[in-house]
């Protein structure tokens, strides 16, 4: 399941870019399936600034841990605090309630993948 209206990073994050220069970021259906039942999400703080490709947090399941990379450059303006108590939202709804952060973009993101390109990567990693 790879929604058509999103862009993607090689490291399995998705990005929804809005007209006002903000973006929402989460991890893909493929990523949450690979991790299994997610038990903990470590998110950055509002106000943190990242460049595309920076490590900004991590996701843990019982048997695995994975770094979370910031797919775009900008400043964190909101984090999904609901994940503190309910990390299972990432499994249940990776593109909806399971979003991670909202970012004020520095500039136009580049190097992101189209749904088709990401589908190929997910296929190859499988």
């Amino acid at each position: 399941m790879i929604p058509n209206d999103l862009l993607y990073a090689k490291t399995h994050e998705w990005v929804r870019i809005e007209d006002n220069g903000e973006a929402t970021v989460g991890i893909t259906q493929f990523a949450q399936e690979q991790l299994g039942d997610i038990t903990y999400v470590e998110l950055p703080s509002v106000g943190d600034v990242f460049s595309a490709g920076d490590e900004m947090g991590s996701v843990e399941s019982v048997k695995a841990a994975s770094e979370l990379y910031c797919p775009v450059s900008g400043e964190i303006i909101a984090v999904n605090e609901a994940l503190d108590d309910a990390p299972e939202k990432v499994n249940a709804s990776p593109y909806g309630d399971g979003w991670f952060v909202r970012i004020k973009l520095d500039d136009e993101p580049d190097d992101l993948l189209s749904p088709e390109e990401y589908a190929e990567i997910a296929q190859a990693d499988h």
Binding site: Y40, E60, K63, A64, A65
Partner: peptide, 9 residues
């Protein structure tokens, strides 16, 4: 909380 440990990370 084993995901913190060396055999995974």
């Amino acid at each position: 909380l084993q995901a913190r440990e060396q055999h995974i990370r």
